[in-house]
Design a protein around this nucleic acid. Structure first.
Lengths: 229, 229
DNA sequence: CTAAGTCCAATCATCCTACAACTTTTCAAA
DNA sequence: TTTGAAAAGTTGTAGGATGATTGGACTTAG
């Protein structure tokens, strides 16, 4: 196999540089980019070249331009945006099923690979759930609940699973919030979280999967009931 | 909530039109697009506007431009490309774990929702596996094997799961092929396929999941052994 | 006739200037 | 203080000019 003689176009070079600046948090979400005129000088390219680069990133969902105002960073992950769009084209039920698939695998892997730091993070997030539950703050509880699940997924030590889970859960969150608030009833039993954590701590794979199934099936029933109203 | 006064920019309009032409197979993969000059006239926009639109789609992975030659359609799914890139950044093991997660969920859902057409498709693909196996053609067998799994995922009747599975499996395929060919040994027992199919036919969820676990664990062991060599 | 090399037309890549459309800021008048 | 118009700044669109690369047509030597 010979070397592939691919020279990156100027546009692609600028795109990569901007992507890098965003990924490295040099430009954070919400930040305004310098004006085109200044970026032209900094990257030492013409306006057309710069604009093509920016346009590519706008379409990818990383940037957003507004005529007369400027360009701001909208997201730091093109993959997240792509997944987000896919989720929007799907039903909530479909997405939940995919999330269940990932969560079940994560629970299994977490039970095998979790370390002390993972367990600590999960324990802390359960405390947050408990606090929010006692205050009766639904929104805060959901926030904490997500932190717990993310901690579990992280304990699976599979970065791809983690990324997929995060970007699938994020767009679901608003739907879930609506449904839960609309559902009005809010009976949190902290036992499931504790039992799941205990199973992972004891490295009991079957128990962990079983609790995840139980958790999600409860949730699925809840949503089905609310949607039928 | 007042109406949002969003006007699509010309560039975005052109992008959408081109995306549509590709999705609707008016321009198929491998096809060459008309030259910029002609597209300018057809879309009735300036060269800059057209080029920004094309550049956005090039970066999304739908198109590919080559100086002096032209622009060709490279893919029909931006989501597929994004997922492909993500898979490339991950290890084969990580990706396999994600695939297992999806496959397990698919088997469960398929056991519940499969219809006669689904069963027929799965049965046919098993025949293909058998034929390829008898011929000893590894490549053809892998091809048929993938068709079987895709048929099962399709039987889950969850489009999102289907799309995710397809775009995760595709880039894995070449890795798997390398590994299998390098592994040299190729002992296919058609029993697992039949048993899995039977479980889905009988709507036995637990058995279906069990066979999938068995199938993938075998595969995982095989890869681990080969990679250690 | 074949094969190698040359030339040329087509095509994309980059740059430039100009103007239009929109937003924000500034500032003066009511 | 509020209003409204002007000004400055920013992105959007247009059109032209030139460079770089490709692929095919053509030429020529063997």
């Amino acid at each position: 196999m010979l070397k592939k003689t691919e020279r990156l176009s100027l546009v692609e070079q600028v795109v990569i540089q901007i992507e890098h600046l965003i990924e490295s948090s040099h430009w954070q979400i919400g930040d305004q980019l310098p004006a085109e005129m200044q970026l032209m000088k900094e990257f030492d390219v013409s306006r057309n070249t710069l604009r093509e680069a920016i346009r590519a990133l706008v379409h990818a969902g990383l940037l957003e331009t507004k005529q007369g105002s400027g360009t701001v960073v909208k997201s730091s992950s093109a993959f997240g945006v792509a997944l987000h769009r896919q989720v929007e084209k799907s039903s909530v039920m479909e997405t939940l099923e995919v999330r269940l698939a990932l969560e079940r695998e994560a629970a299994q892997l977490a039970a095998i690979r979790r370390n002390d730091l993972d367990l600590e993070a999960m324990t802390e997030s359960i405390q947050l759930c408990k606090l929010a539950s006692e205050k009766g703050d639904v929104q805060e509880f959901l926030q904490a609940d997500i932190i717990f699940h993310k901690a579990m997924v992280k304990a699976s030590h599979n970065k791809m699973l983690e990324r997929l889970y995060e970007h699938i859960t994020e767009p679901l969150q608003s739907s879930i919030e609506e449904i839960m608030v609309a559902g009005a009833y809010f009976n949190y039993s902290e036992e499931i979280h504790y039992e799941l954590l205990e199973a992972i701590k004891q490295q009991d794979v079957h128990a962990a999967i079983s609790y995840v199934n139980q958790y999600i099936n409860d949730f699925r029933e809840k949503i089905k009931r609310i949607q039928e109203d």
